[in-house]
Simulated scan of single mutants.
Amino acid sequence: MCVSDAFTRLFAPDSVTNREPTPSLRSRLCERTSLQDETLIAAAQQGDAAAFEELVRRHQEGAFRAAFLVLRDADEAEDAAQEGLVKAYKAIRSFRPGHEFRPWLLRIVINQALTMHRSRRRGVAAAERLAVRERPLPHSIDETVIDRERARLVWAALESLREQERVVVYLRYFLNLPERELAEYLGCAQGTVKSRLHRALGKLREVVVQRYPQLLGETT
């Protein structure tokens, strides 16, 4: 079940949960697909659930991807994204006009994902990272498995960063957030974003060189 379907079920009355949208509701939803986020936000702040549902439709994929980057588990990411969207719906009246909606929403979703991530047993996570670092590769391994192993090493390297450093890297390089939106997310100037990214990438490179030089191939 996708996030938007879950959102619809959550806020729809029980008697209409499994029904097709009425013609009038379908018409309202179609009208909203051509509106700017700012217009939909203003309507949602006035209690228009259909307007917020359109915002969910537009941003649910980004919300799920952000949660998945933190949790790296599809089911948990779906739960985190859904819970984050519900929290965003409840907090929509606190959204300040003139700000970017996507960073505001991603902050809520990522905070939810981080809360879930912290609840995992630290010992299990540490053991998994150690196993990734020490497991040798067979000489006859095929390219698909090599790619999978490299991906695990990349995640292990990222896990060595501090929480907020990882999030900055995720948002900028995995979700392609422009620096303007990243500044909104962090609540700082764009110049500060550049310096934080520079520090995070510097630390990441140190970790890769020291622990996972195989990720650098023949350039080391």
Score class of each variant (00 low, 15 high):
153 L>G: 13
140 S>L: 14
5 D>T: 10
1 M>F: 02
101 F>P: 04
151 A>T: 05
159 E>G: 03
101 F>T: 00
21 P>Q: 09
95 F>R: 01
91 A>L: 15
197 L>H: 06
33 T>Y: 08
144 T>M: 12
28 R>P: 03
173 Y>R: 00
23 P>F: 09
152 R>F: 05
17 T>P: 07
166 R>Y: 10
152 R>H: 08
50 A>H: 11
200 A>M: 05
127 A>G: 08
20 E>Q: 14
211 R>E: 04
63 A>F: 01
133 R>G: 10
93 R>C: 14
105 L>W: 06
175 L>N: 02
206 E>D: 14
57 R>I: 09
128 E>H: 01
118 R>N: 07
10 L>Q: 06
126 A>W: 07
23 P>L: 09
173 Y>A: 01
82 Q>F: 12
90 K>R: 10
87 K>A: 10
85 L>E: 07
81 A>I: 13
101 F>W: 01
81 A>D: 13
197 L>T: 01
9 R>N: 15
149 E>P: 03
10 L>P: 06
189 A>N: 06
134 E>H: 04
89 Y>Q: 14
26 R>V: 10
198 H>Y: 06
126 A>S: 12
34 S>W: 10
164 Q>F: 04
132 V>P: 03
72 R>N: 15
161 L>A: 03
87 K>N: 10
16 V>C: 12
216 L>W: 11
88 A>D: 00
162 R>I: 01
194 K>Q: 04
190 Q>V: 04
93 R>G: 13
134 E>D: 05
171 L>V: 00
104 W>D: 07
124 V>W: 02
32 R>D: 15
134 E>A: 00
69 L>G: 14
125 A>H: 11
176 N>M: 08
3 V>T: 04
75 D>K: 05
28 R>W: 04
35 L>T: 10
219 T>F: 13
127 A>D: 02
130 L>E: 15
93 R>S: 15
